[in-house]
Design a protein around this nucleic acid. Structure first.
Lengths: 182, 182
DNA sequence: GGGTACATGTAATCAGTTACATGATTTA
DNA sequence: TAAATCATGTAACTGATTACATGTACCC
């Protein structure tokens, strides 16, 4: 009964951090924050406080190497250790049990739409459509002007997200037109 | 500066509970669990423990009326109070700031796909496609055999979810075929 | 009458959020 | 040199998850 195997308590956020560091080679918390904001932040948000706390924790477990600047700012730069690289590789190769979650509060509202008036439904449907349009525009801009250092896998994800946004727009437009039947 | 107005500390889960109770007229925690499992549970999971804890809390705040069975099982049945109905209506009419999150661990993995081998990417792309296919089948079954008491709004959401699943399947199939370029 | 699935809760822990705080650069 | 913004963290709280625990009904 070996109990020291596998991941001790690594969350998706942990792997997000490991992946970011691996992708960048070396990174400060701020750089990760930037990268997240520029890419997956739109559909997988991570508050910056976690991007400071989590790398520190991972360094404590030995999955990251923490290099502290001596000079004034004393910022911490992280790099993958071998165990860290292994953990990342293991996660990448592991199957995901839980299918993706589609947490959209508007969807929840629509689910209870019968308890609101049709006018209310139409109103937030219009708002939702607008909001998705904005997001789609943002993603399309990203695709058109990819940040330096992004690779094809990363861009391909944006393709899926764009398709989803397009569906969402069509959907909410339809709901706005016919709030009762959708 | 009136500070007693509006929602004190109501989370999406709170409104989910309020909505469920409103939809059912009256409900026990278990009934909510059933309903969640049969409908939104696939993309907006809620652990059953919350469906016991949260109604109790809401009853404490006065948004739900809790009726305790005298007999053996002593189960608690909830019903909306007027304030509860107001809170629900207010939420339904309020705009959502945060756009929906698309938390899918597979997406995260693909994002870091360049750090895994193409073989690895292809493997989990195939798995992801399969998983989405299963989910799509499940939703389509739901649409074909709607549970009693479901209304059109609720079914319409399933339509969107189905479309999203279809996109996801197409996407992951493409990735599986061409893991490098996607 | 013994097992299995249904039903109903509680307790402990923790990841993640929110809020607080402040130093370093740039800009006007 | 004041304001604004960029950059870097820490602290407190809490909603949610995980795990525990037990009763009841049905089925074989």
């Amino acid at each position: 009964m070996d109990r020291s195997e596998s991941t001790p308590n690594l969350t998706p956020t942990s792997f997000l951090v490991l992946g970011m560091v691996g992708h960048l080679g070396e990174a400060t918390s701020y750089q990760m924050k930037q990268l997240v904001g520029a890419t997956i932040g739109g559909f997988w948000p991570v508050p910056h406080s976690q991007l400071y706390a989590e790398p520190a924790r991972l360094a404590g477990i030995g999955l990251l190497d923490e290099q502290r600047e001596a000079a004034g700012r004393k910022k911490r730069t992280y790099r993958l250790t071998e165990p860290g690289r292994d953990a990342l590789a293991g996660w990448l190769a592991s199957p995901d049990e839980a299918g993706g979650e589609l947490r959209d509060e508007s969807l929840l509202k629509l689910f209870f739409g019968a308890q609101a008036g049709p006018g209310t439904v139409a109103t937030f449907a219009r708002r939702a459509a607008t909001s998705h349009r904005d997001r789609l525009a943002g993603y399309e801009h990203l695709v058109a002007h990819p940040p330096v250092g992004s690779d094809l896998h990363q861009l391909s994800i944006l393709a899926l997200v764009c398709r989803y946004e397009a569906e969402a727009i069509a959907f909410w437009d339809a709901v706005a037109v016919d709030p009762d039947l959708a």
